[in-house]
Simulated assay, not measured.
Amino acid sequence: MTDIQSLFAQMVGRFDSAAAAGLEAVFQYRLDEGDAYYAAISNGECTLGEGEHDEPSVTLLMDTETFKEVLDGETNGMQAFMAGRIRAEGDIMLATRLETLFPVS
């Protein structure tokens, strides 16, 4: 498992199914280094996929360092977005739920 894969596995491991009640969504991640993964949420479960999803609800673009910092809680995702370190395409409001869906702890 690559470092990037383990980061995504860590994120999915923190998934809060209660926060996802009634949510059907696909969060596509595209890292500047070329890695693409997605987290698909359906029926209170989250599955991780590698590559590009056919119909992502929102796509988040960032570099690996930013992803690590947000995952570790060093950087607030919304602040990183406002600072231009994270770019989003699609349902941007959905991206605001990430902190509750995948709490840092």
Rank of each mutant, 00 (worst) to 15 (best):
M1Q: 11
M1N: 13
T2S: 15
D3H: 14
D3M: 08
D3N: 12
D3I: 01
I4R: 12
I4P: 06
S6V: 06
S6W: 03
L7I: 13
L7V: 13
A9I: 12
A9R: 11
A9V: 10
Q10K: 15
Q10H: 13
M11P: 00
M11A: 13
V12N: 10
V12A: 06
R14D: 07
R14W: 11
F15L: 02
D16N: 11
D16W: 00
S17W: 09
A18I: 08
A19K: 02
A19Q: 02
A20Q: 06
A20R: 01
A20D: 02
L23I: 12
L23Y: 09
E24L: 13
A25G: 09
R30N: 11
R30D: 13
L31C: 08
L31T: 10
L31G: 08
G34D: 01
G34A: 06
A36D: 06
A36M: 05
A36I: 04
A36L: 01
Y37P: 05
Y38I: 05
A39D: 06
A40T: 11
I41Q: 02
S42M: 12
S42D: 12
S42E: 14
S42I: 00
G44K: 04
G44A: 08
G44W: 10
E45Q: 15
E45I: 05
T47G: 15
L48T: 04
G49H: 04
G49V: 06
G49L: 02
E50Y: 06
E50K: 15
E52V: 03
E52N: 03
H53M: 05
H53C: 01
D54Q: 14
D54C: 01
E55Q: 13
P56S: 09
S57V: 05
V58I: 12
L61P: 00
M62E: 09
D63F: 11
T64M: 13
T64W: 14
T66C: 04
K68S: 12
V70T: 08
V70W: 03
L71V: 15
L71I: 13
G73Q: 06
E74C: 00
T75Y: 10
T75V: 12
N76T: 03
G77A: 06
M78S: 11
M78N: 09
F81D: 08
F81P: 09
M82Y: 03
G84K: 10
G84V: 05
R85A: 04
R87K: 15
A88I: 11
A88W: 00
G90K: 02
G90R: 04
D91N: 01
D91A: 01
L94S: 01
L94K: 03
T96C: 05
T96K: 10
R97L: 11
L98A: 09
L98G: 12
E99R: 14
T100I: 14
T100G: 13
T100Q: 13
F102V: 07
F102M: 06
F102A: 05
P103V: 07
V104R: 09
V104M: 11
V104N: 13
S105L: 12
